[in-house]
Design a protein around this nucleic acid. Structure first.
Length: 475
DNA sequence: ATGTTC
């Protein structure tokens, strides 16, 4: 994009002064190379978000930002309900609470290399993957509502995992204020058979090895060392979250003319202090709990698969992060602490050292920030940096971000070839869809290393460890 | 991301 409209506040911070209908400045955290490569639409969307009522501080974009629906993916924006602030379905995204969790295995690379193909087959047999995939669970109406209220806490009560897992999930695995009655029957119907499924697109379950450690002290606090094998699960709220997004986007577009003048109808939103805004928050929180429960059940399935191959191995949870949320949080703004509704769309919460929400054992290190790479490339574990609350309300990047469209990727690659090439490099892919594999080819994504480097240089997060994939179950 | 195009 054109850089003339920005004023640089440091080598990795680009400020767009508030002009026209913008109420606050826009801020993009990126290297010169990354921001130059971003679509002009990202700046336009950052500016559009800055024009929404009740926005506080600035409209932010992370180093992996790209063009999204209304809000950029990689966008962060906080709103104050007392100042006419809004909540936006497009500002959360369709895959509500899509996120990543990483599990320790206690195994070393050599242990897994010896059994890699069998492990890949067992995981693929146990983990339902692909569009429209269904799980073993069939939820009744009452069971579904209990899940939407209870999130991962509900899943643990149902026998999926342990109480210890909950301490390693944002909000202890269950976000308050979920309102299942605000979720449509259609959304619930779509989810009835989809609990414990991976879904498709960029969702995956990966077995990974810690390839490099960049901060020994934090790595130690997280229980990570070079050669350790971990499991990462990337997925979200499946059909339910998508249907909630669709339902409320429609309602917010219809309601908009009565209230807010929008620069782009994709920014459809509702005042936080409106019935529609409150209903969406209740439904969106139910969607978050659905994603947390889904990742918890998938964790249970991964544990069962590992037990088939390594009978005495346990898979304790390192941490679980969500990427597509609107969360009510306290933040310092100037001299005061204010209750804000922070939209993170394709952005990870990244609380720095000392934050009261963090588990005690991570309090000093800062929050684990789990960055999913593209299939066949590195993933990263970062830590929330000191001062990140002042930079982007305690947020950081979430992944590599696409470099080309799915259509373009399909034109360039065949899934079979991608699988073979990765196998030659020791990375085993198991997927129901060669088409999906082609769409997710490693080169269809930006360089996640450059994104992570920019996040660190911008002071959002600290590099802790780089992970290399060994096995990937792909939706 | 998504019962892969309301």
């Amino acid at each position: 994009m054109e850089l003339a409209k920005f004023r640089q506040r440091g080598p990795f911070e680009w400020v767009m002064p508030a002009t026209g209908r913008m109420r606050v400045p826009g801020v993009i955290y990126a290297s010169r190379d990354l921001i130059e490569a971003m679509d002009e639409k990202v700046a336009e969307q950052v500016a559009n978000v800055a024009s929404l009522p009740g926005i506080v501080g600035a409209s932010y974009a992370m180093p992996d930002a790209h063009w999204g629906y209304g809000f950029p993916i990689g966008g962060v924006a906080a709103f104050d309900a007392d100042e006419g602030g809004v909540v936006s379905a497009g500002g959360v995204g369709f895959d509500i609470s899509c996120g990543v969790r990483t599990l320790h295995t206690g195994l070393k690379l050599a242990d897994v290399e010896a059994a890699k193909a069998r492990l890949a087959d067992v995981l693929y047999a146990r983990i339902p993957a692909g569009i429209g995939s269904t799980g073993a669970l069939r939820l009744s109406a009452a069971g579904l509502d209990a899940m939407l209220h209870g999130g991962a806490r509900w899943a643990v009560k149902e026998g999926y995992g342990s109480e210890a897992d909950l301490a390693r999930i944002e909000e202890s695995g269950c976000v308050a204020g979920a309102d299942p009655s605000a979720v449509s029957d259609m959304a619930k119907k779509r989810q009835r058979d989809e609990m414990g499924t991976l879904g498709s697109g960029n969702h995956y379950l990966e077995v990974q090895v810690v390839e490099a450690v960049f901060d020994t002290a934090i790595a130690q606090a997280y229980g990570l060392a070079v050669g350790d094998v971990v499991v990462s699960i990337h997925c979200g709220s499946r059909g339910l979250g998508h249907q909630i997004g669709t339902d409320y986007l429609r309602e917010m577009v219809i309601a908009a003319p009565a209230g807010i003048a929008l620069p782009d109808r994709e920014l459809a939103c509702a005042p936080l202090k409106s019935k529609l805004g409150q209903r969406y928050l209740g439904a969106m929180r139910a969607g978050i709990n659905c994603a947390l429960a889904n990742r918890q059940i998938l964790t249970h399935l991964a544990r069962a698969a590992f037990a088939d191959v390594f009978p005495r191995v346990r898979l304790p949870l390192l941490y679980d992060v969500s990427h597509n949320t609107c969360k009510e949080e306290m933040h310092r703004v100037g001299e005061e602490r204010r209750r804000l509704f922070v939209h993170r769309k394709g952005a990870t919460r990244a609380f720095g050292p000392g934050h009261a929400e963090l588990p005690r054992e991570f309090r000093e290190a800062g929050q684990p920030v789990l960055i999913g790479g593209s299939m066949g490339t590195a993933s990263w574990i970062l830590a929330g940096a000191a001062g990140t609350e002042e930079r982007a309300f305690g947020s950081a990047c979430h992944g590599a971000g696409r470099a080309m469209s799915r259509h373009e990727a399909l034109r360039r690659w065949h899934g079979r070839n991608v699988v073979d090439e990765l196998a030659a490099r020791g990375i085993l892919i198991r997927s129901p869809s060669f088409r999906g594999v082609a769409e997710e080819a490693p080169l269809a994504y930006k360089d996640v290393g450059a994104v992570v480097e920019a996040a660190e240089q911008a002071g959002l997060a600290v590099k802790v460890a780089r992970l290399k994939p060994l096995v990937c179950v792909k939706g």
